[in-house]
């Protein structure tokens, strides 16, 4: 009998829980890009400490595309994004009545890496990268000496992020001219450490991922200087700020649900805290902060609750920090 009573209690409890567990509005839900994750995580950690755990936050890592899917359905409050929102995602959000604020938070230098034993590919032009990565290269461009005749007659081992990644979207747009236009016959992983290991383990490898993964493994990998017509430039904070690391330096964003911002004071508090502290924290986790003037522009956009994107549904590659600032102030009027 005792057993039956227990069972009844459990089933009753479940029914109640099922009927009420819907709203979890006290939690701020964040999801999206693995590239933006370290920045947001640092902000969340400091915010939790500052608010003594009163505000609850969770961060998922579904990739930029996965994050936007949830964001456009209104399942999360903030989306980490390593590229601007796409046209399809904008339509989905509009369909569900989700309005959003697009807030650039820092810059990242997408880094092309080769093995440390690679002594030939010190510098590559964007055209050469395109020759390797464009969809037509699949099955035809397989050897280093097809890129430059003096390079070895050896197979290129290609490593890159998977298709749900914002890094993939941005790189393909910057290099091949169209987002998601890429050859498919390369070793793809959403886990950047797998790519690091792959490039580290093969002399003839080539891969690309965010700068923080390169800088954490700088002894085990070699970065390739990118030549966009003005000589080879290696990825670095200075090059990104000077606007010379083109076209692979890219802005990183958070997208905030406007309704959550208006209706929930804790979301507003968190985003304010984010914009106030991201400069310092981004530098700490090896990203390039925006200049102060840019943060001022982003804050003013935030203060005015100005919704929408300043990008037309696709990445504009090769934007310098100056461009972003101008864009902010222009649309800020």
């Amino acid at each position: 009998m005792a057993l039956m009573n227990k069972c009844a209690a459990v089933i009753g409890g479940l029914g109640i829980a099922a009927s009420v567990a819907m709203g979890q509005t006290s939690t701020i839900r964040i999801d999206g890009s693995s590239t933006v994750y370290p920045v947001t995580e640092a902000v969340v950690e400091e915010f939790s400490a500052a608010s003594r755990g009163k505000v609850k936050l969770t961060i998922g890592v579904s990739g930029t595309g996965g994050g936007f899917k949830k964001f456009a359905r209104g399942e999360i409050d903030i989306s980490n994004a390593s590229r601007p929102i796409s046209t399809g995602e904008m339509e989905e959000a509009a369909k569900n009545g989700v309005e959003y604020l697009e807030l650039p938070v820092c810059f990242d230098a997408l880094t092309v890496v080769v093995n440390t034993q690679n002594d030939w590919a010190k510098t590559m032009t964007v055209a050469e990268l395109k020759k390797i990565w464009e969809p037509g290269a699949q099955g035809t461009i397989t050897k280093w000496n097809q890129i430059r005749p003096e390079w070895p007659n050896e197979k290129i081992d290609l490593y890159g992020p998977g298709t749900d990644s914002g890094t993939f979207d941005y790189f393909t747009e910057a290099v091949c001219g169209k987002a998601k236009a890429s050859r498919g016959d390369y070793a793809a992983s959403e886990d950047d450490n797998v790519l690091v290991q792959g490039v580290e383990g093969s002399k003839y490898a080539l891969g690309y991922f965010g700068f923080s993964y390169y800088s954490a493994h700088a002894k085990r990998l070699t970065a390739v200087a990118i030549d966009n017509g003005k000589g080879g430039i290696l990825p670095s904070n200075e090059a990104v700020i000077a606007g010379t690391y083109n076209p692979l330096s890219r802005p990183l964003f958070i997208y905030v649900n406007k309704k959550a911002l208006q209706e929930r004071p804790e979301v507003k508090q968190f985003v304010e805290f984010y914009l106030e502290n991201v400069k310092e924290l981004a530098a700490e986790v090896k990203y390039t902060p925006l200049p102060d003037s840019a943060y001022e522009a982003v804050k003013s956009r935030f203060a005015k609750l100005q919704a929408g994107t300043v990008f037309g549904g696709h990445s504009e590659t090769g934007l310098t920090i100056d461009d972003i600032v101008k864009r902010e102030t222009k649309t800020g009027k």
């Binding site: 567990a21 979890q24 923080s212």
Partner: peptide, 27 residues
């Protein structure tokens, strides 16, 4: 009833997922 079962409705993580998060970090 509600305050007794509130914990059932919260977000959570588990040990294997935390491990995966840690192993996939840079460095």
């Amino acid at each position: 009833v509600y305050p007794g079962v509130a914990w059932l409705g919260t977000s959570f993580t588990v040990v294997p997922i935390q491990m995966f998060n840690w192993i996939s970090r840079p460095g």
